[in-house]
């Protein structure tokens, strides 16, 4: 255990919905100042875990400490120091962008004058200055997500929890949010996020876990996870019966992923050579393994509801 107390500590954290374990005895610790990611397919238990950490959903079992306190008894004190970006956009449609921030700051007992000046700064921070007095419904999806990020910062949180922060955004908007998250991290704030986007996780997270069926499958730094879970590189070629037969005849193990065949190997040159020499293929690609390969290896390729 590290000497500095963790920002979030979970031990055998469990959540049941009826008899269904949505989160099943998970253990993790988020350290001060890091970006910690939760990856997993739909229904893996990521959002449920976030909601327990946000003190809005009571746990069914295990130990949970957020900022050193138990959410079951100190929710109000914890929430004062936590900023939340929910998956669902729940900005107040009755108000403009600026008013949303000012009204929200009131829920934290921030004096109106102070709230107004923070709103001004945060609007600038997420580049919405020209839209400050626009009603919510006239903002684009990306603007709404940026405004929600600004809203989550209105109480100057020590811990920022983001559930799918860039869902449905165009590349420009995603890059802006990533950039802002990096500068929030640089201020020493701790960030916990969930995402489906593996490139997002690889770019942002210092450490991450991959969850499925309510359990944590692996934990680590993105780069070392790839190295640990995948040996060598990936050779990809088209998926035809001929290629399959050819690979089998060479005794090369492979995996079928829809239209492509993938070979995991430490010696990509040899595999590529064999393919080109005797399998009569049109196209072959060698690439480095990514977090996506780890993700699919651990959680499978089957579609989730």
């Amino acid at each position: 255990m590290p000497s500095v107390p963790a920002v979030i500590e979970a031990d055998a954290l469990t959540k049941y919905f009826g008899s269904f374990p949505a989160v099943d005895h998970i253990c993790f610790a988020v350290e001060e100042g890091e970006v910690f990611g939760f990856l997993g397919p739909n229904g893996a238990g990521k959002t449920t875990t976030m909601r327990m950490c946000e003190c809005v959903s009571p746990r069914s079992g295990g130990i949970l400490k957020v900022l050193g306190r138990d959410p079951a008894h100190h929710a109000r004190a914890i929430k004062r120091e936590v900023g939340v970006v929910p998956q669902e956009t729940n900005l107040d449609p009755e108000f403009t962008a600026r008013e949303n921030l000012v009204i929200y700051s009131r829920y934290f007992d921030i004096p109106r004058r102070e709230g107004e000046s923070r709103a001004e700064e945060l609007i600038k921070f997420v580049e919405l200055t020209e839209r400050a007095d626009t009603p919510i419904e006239q903002l684009s999806g990306g603007m709404k997500r940026r405004l929600i990020l600004a809203r989550a910062l209105v109480n100057e949180p020590r811990l920022l929890i983001l559930d799918e922060p860039t869902i449905g955004l165009d590349p420009q908007a995603r890059h802006l949010i990533w950039d802002r998250l990096r500068s929030i991290r640089a201020e020493g704030r701790t960030i916990v996020l969930t995402t489906h986007y593996l490139d997002e996780a690889a770019r942002l997270c210092d450490r991450l876990v991959i969850m499925d069926h309510g359990k944590i499958l692996v934990e680590g730094e993105p780069e070392s996870l790839v190295q640990k879970e995948i040996t060598g590189e990936i050779v990809e070629t088209e998926h035809t019966p001929a290629v399959e037969a050819c690979l089998n005849s060479h005794g090369i193990p492979f995996e079928v992923a829809g239209e492509v065949v993938q070979v995991q190997t430490k010696d990509p040159a040899a595999v590529t050579g064999a393919l080109l020499a005797s399998c009569s293929i049109g196209r072959v690609i060698t690439r480095r393994a990514t977090l996506e390969d780890v993700f699919l290896k651990l959680t499978g390729r089957r579609l989730r509801e």
């Binding site: 946000e54 809005v56 929710a75 109000r76 004190a77 929430k79 004062r80 939340v84 929910p86 669902e88 729940n90 900005l91 107040d92 449609p93 009755e94 929200y104 829920y107 934290f108 007992d109 109480n155």
Partner: peptide, 14 residues
């Protein structure tokens, strides 16, 4: 529809 209660209960307001 507006999820206003959800937004507010993420703050210290219960």
């Amino acid at each position: 529809y507006q999820k206003t209660f959800d937004a507010i209960t993420a703050t210290p307001v219960t």
